[in-house]
Each structure stands twice: as C-alpha cells, then as structure tokens.
C-alpha cells in the first residue's frame, strides 16, 4: 500500500510517516499544499492523509483539486481546530473521513484501513477469498484457518492483489505500491514474491489464486466473499 502524507508540522509529519512505514506502507510526504497536490497527481496511492491548515495551498483546496481531477483516492483529513464547520466542509469538499488533533496513532491506522478497504469495495474488517483470509490490522494471512508465514513484502503483495481481486495489476503498479519514491525498484523481485506466495497459499497446486497474464501483470482469481452491503 502506498500512502501520501501532507502535513506541515515536521514532528507530526515524521510521526505519521514513521507509523505508516512501520505498518508496511510505502510513504511519500510533503509539508505544503502544492507539493502535496503534485505528489497525489503524479504518484498512484491508496490513501492520502491531508492536514487542513497547510501553507501555500489549504488542505480544502488540495482535496477539491484532487476530486476535480476525478480521482477517487481515499482522503483522511487532519484538523487542529476540531470544529464541525471544518469537518463538514472537508467532507463536503471530498474527504472521506476526519481526525481531530491530537489523535491516537492506533485510531489513525484504524481509519486508514477502513478507508482503503472501503475504496476496494470491502466492508468487512478482514478480506476473505475462498479459503484464503487476510486481516489487514494484524497483517496475518490464513489458508483454511491455518496461519501462513509471510515476509513483509510477500504480505504487501498479497494484500494489494486481494484488495483488487478480479482486476489486472501490472508489475509496475505493484512495484509503485510496494516501495517508497526512492526505494529499490527491481521488478524481477516481484516475480520471486509471486512464486513464493503461490507455493505458500496453494501448496496442492489446485487453487491457482494468482494468475499471470503475460505482458500485462497478475490477477487474483478467487471471488471475494463480500458482505451483503
């Protein structure tokens, strides 16, 4: 998962970025509105955390511009004032949820996970596709109820694929969602991760959860057991 953090206070910015990285996110951050807007427009992300009181361009403006571009990127706004006028205006401008400063980082992570799940069309806290079950908050994956040991990168790959079950995900998109802007981008590594995931999630080789589409990318094939809503 890739997150963009736009927050002008250096300490809070560092804290949020640190926590997100700790949770396995690839994070880009900006300390002003216009740089932040540039990041959102240029890099595909799964969630953006935007402070409302930003220099150069206010958080509200950033959100309005992002929505005007037609982007459905989930956006969490941070507000220091905490008054309802800000919250309602932020949500009205296109944000998806809000957090009032100061906030618990646990709470922030919970909100972010909900937003990402919601954007992928999931309404349950954990994702289930056939016998495979993924719990984003504990970052655990199980097969027929038995936990599967995964490395951090393997988890990131399967999480992204399951979030976008049924869709074709190219190797470059996967790479972008796994690594920071300045991270090591070797797309051959992706193939290694996929091969290992197939071994771990489909030991009997009868499930075939990840399909390779030559020259186009990968697709998670198992139909998601979505909630009734």
């Amino acid at each position: 998962m890739r997150a963009i953090v736009i927050e002008d206070d250096r300490h809070i910015n560092e804290q949020i970025v640190g926590r997100l990285k700790q949770e396995g996110f690839a994070v880009d951050s900006a300390d002003n509105g216009s740089d932040g807007l540039f990041l959102i427009q240029e890099y595909p992300a799964d969630v953006a955390i935007v402070d409302l009181g930003l220099p150069q361009m206010s958080g509200l403006e950033v959100i309005r511009k992002v929505r005007a571009d037609g982007s459905k990127l989930p956006i969490l706004i941070l507000t220091a004032r905490g008054n309802w006028q800000d919250k309602v205006e932020g949500l009205d401008a296109g944000a998806d949820d809000y957090l009032v400063k100061p906030f618990h980082q646990e709470e922030m992570m919970a909100r972010i996970r909900v937003l990402i799940r919601r954007a992928a069309g999931w309404s349950d806290a954990s994702l289930s596709c056939g016998p495979i079950r993924l719990d984003p908050s504990s970052q655990r994956v199980s097969l027929n109820g038995v936990e599967v040991e995964l490395t951090a990168y393997e988890y990131k790959v399967i999480e992204y694929l399951m979030m976008h079950a049924g869709e074709v995900v190219s190797k470059s998109v996967l790479t972008e969602h796994l690594y920071d802007e300045d991270g090591d981008r070797d797309s051959n590594v992706i193939e290694v991760f996929i091969r290992r995931l197939r071994q771990k999630l489909d030991p009997a080789n009868d499930l075939n959860p990840i399909e390779t589409l030559r020259g186009r990318g990968y697709r998670f094939t198992l139909p998601p057991a979505r909630a009734a809503s």
């Binding site: 206070d9 300490h11 809070i12 804290q15 009181g53 220091a80 004032r81 905490g82 400063k101 100061p102 906030f103 618990h104 980082q105 646990e106």
Partner: peptide
C-alpha cells in the same frame, strides 16, 4: 491559538506512543 496549542499536543501524544 487552537492550532498552535494542539499541534504540540499532537506531537506529545505521538511521543507517548
């Protein structure tokens, strides 16, 4: 005032975590 008081509070809370 709200902004300047709450941002340091947010930093402090982050530290406590």
């Amino acid at each position: 005032l709200a902004h300047s008081l709450k941002t340091p509070l947010a930093v402090l809370r982050g530290l406590t975590e």
